[in-house]
């Protein structure tokens, strides 16, 4: 019928490439003794991060959850940590995840995350493994120089000449003006994080990972998310992000295992949601109970599989590597 966009967004060669990458990922982890797992896509709890929006669906029964709102995962992190606390050992998952409000050249509201956890690793050791996997998957397709590691502070010092851990809102605003970054209306005057995000996305990210895997690591404590804090002056979140050719590919943590700290962060996030007029998310009490029972010391990372496929296929948008991108799903 005319007017219907029934054809796939990705060509057949790209779909074959995706299948090949998935097979190689499974072989990579099988060789390293990492167990493949699957966790639910429907949960009564949801992430409270104010910058992530979960899709909600309604379960009509039967059973105790009759008439309950359930949430689709923005990542499989919480149930995977419950497996770790239950003694699973190292695990990985190739998960379909969902994020409302995210669509664009590099965003599709549903996408595939490769997420894995390594017991006994810290974030630096996990960065080594991420580099090994990415290098192996991109070999012969993308020529890569040696991987590079850059602390969050070093990146800001290099590109903007300021210390992100100490700069004030006024200093960050002045830097945005000096580097001709358009300042959005309504930027807060009492929080530096949105200003750091503005400078990072506009001035630093586009140049990260030029022809090489670049890891940005040790984030401001306020951006630690689910990473543990390393005491110091200032303390930093043991978190990293991977970039290639200006595109963010992965986010990892030396995982926070402290249940008290985790509960405090959830409460802070929900307070921030309330202040922004966003709905309060039901906290994952199962995760907190698992942390209380004991999460083994581990590091975990989530890698955007579609973006990796896009770079491997030398495409410019996610729509070209998805069988059916959102606008024709």
């Amino acid at each position: 019928m005319a007017g219907f966009c029934w054809q796939p967004g990705a060509d057949l060669a790209t779909l074959r490439l995706r299948a090949d990458l998935l097979a190689r990922i499974r072989a990579f982890f099988a060789a390293r003794g990492v167990l493949e797992v699957e966790t639910p896509a429907l949960s009564a709890a949801a992430i409270s991060d104010p910058h992530l929006a979960s899709f909600a669906v309604c379960y009509t029964g039967p059973g105790p959850r009759h008439g309950q709102t359930l949430y689709l995962p923005t990542s499989p992190e919480f149930p995977m940590k419950r497996l770790l606390a239950a003694g699973s050992g190292c695990i990985y998952q190739i998960a379909r995840v969902f994020r409302d409000g995210e669509a664009g050249r590099l965003h599709n509201p549903e996408f595939t995350l490769l997420e894995w956890y390594r017991v006994g690793f810290d974030h630096h050791r996990l960065m080594d493994e991420v580099a090994d996997l990415a290098t192996e998957l991109l070999a012969g397709r993308v020529s890569l120089a040696e991987p590079e590691r850059l602390s969050y502070r070093a990146a800001f010092q290099r590109d903007l000449g300021l210390d992100p851990h100490r700069a004030t809102v006024a200093e960050l605003a002045a830097s945005a003006e000096r580097f001709e970054v358009s300042i959005p209306p309504g930027m807060p005057t009492d929080k530096t994080d949105p200003w750091l995000d503005l400078l990072l996305t506009h001035r630093i990210e586009p140049r990260l990972g030029a022809g090489r895997l670049t890891f940005l690591y040790d984030y401001p404590a306020s951006q630690a998310a689910l990473a543990r804090l390393r005491p110091g002056d200032p303390p930093v979140g043991e978190r990293f992000e991977l970039y290639l050719n200006g595109i963010e590919l992965a986010n990892g943590f030396h995982e926070l295992g402290d249940v008290v700290e985790q509960r405090r962060r959830f409460e802070e996030e929900n307070a921030a949601r309330r202040a922004l007029g966003l709905s309060i998310m039901p906290v994952d009490d199962n995760l907190l109970a698992a942390l209380a029972a004991g999460l083994p010391d581990c590091a975990g990372v989530a890698l955007g599989f579609d973006r990796l496929a896009m770079l491997a296929a030398e495409k410019k948008s996610l729509a070209e590597v998805l069988a059916f991108p959102f606008d024709r799903a």
Binding site: H51, R105, P194, L200, T201, E205, E248
Partner: peptide, 14 residues
């Protein structure tokens, strides 16, 4: 119109 978002944090429309 380009939607940009750091790994975690504030999203922008450039």
């Amino acid at each position: 119109n380009e939607f940009v978002k750091p790994g975690k944090g504030q999203a922008f429309n450039r």
